[in-house]
Amino acid sequence: MKLKKINGLTLFNPEETQDSGALFFDAGISAGYPSPTEDFSNQHYLSLDKELVKNKQSTFYAKVSGQSMIGAGLDDNDLLVIDRSLEPANNKIAVCFLDGEFTVKRLRVDVDGIWLKPENPNYPIIRVTEDNNFVIWGIVTNVIKKV
């Protein structure tokens, strides 16, 4: 994975390798009452890049910094999978470049304009105007969390 820093945003570009993948047990792990021990013979290797990255050439990773999207399940230091080939649309979560800074927000798009909506009531909704230097870098497709 290549690491690149741009204007305070750390970007990770996926690199597929021949030996990528970790052992995957396709048995379902109970999150309720414990289930009887199953035979883990149904196993194979799983590549998260192959599962999470649909468009390799246009996908990158970035870490969340801050608390403005906690209501959408995006916490500080979560790793986002972002696809630049997807069309921005109303209600999608997007990584945007706004007036010299990167931000991740939910898009609100209607006939009256574009707003960047945080998922935390402690942060204001941002209205994008012609005066803003604004670019949508990509649409968030997945989030990877540490527990």
Rank of each mutant, 00 (worst) to 15 (best):
V53P: 07
V53W: 10
K54L: 14
K54T: 13
N55C: 13
N55L: 12
N55S: 14
Q57S: 12
Q57T: 15
Q57P: 02
S58A: 14
S58V: 10
T59A: 06
T59H: 08
F60H: 09
F60T: 06
Y61L: 13
A62L: 06
V64A: 11
V64F: 02
V64K: 06
S65K: 14
S65G: 10
S65E: 10
G66A: 06
G66W: 06
G66I: 05
M69I: 11
M69G: 10
M69N: 11
I70Y: 01
I70D: 05
G71P: 10
A72F: 03
G73S: 15
D75M: 12
D76W: 14
D76T: 06
D78S: 11
L80A: 01
L80E: 05
L80V: 00
L80P: 01
V81I: 11
V81C: 04
I82A: 06
I82M: 01
D83C: 06
D83T: 02
R84F: 04
S85H: 10
S85D: 15
L86N: 03
E87M: 10
E87F: 11
A89N: 13
N91P: 05
K92E: 07
K92N: 02
K92Y: 03
I93K: 00
I93M: 05
A94D: 10
A94P: 04
A94W: 03
V95Q: 01
C96M: 04
C96Q: 12
C96N: 13
F97H: 10
G100K: 10
T103R: 00
V104C: 15
V104Q: 04
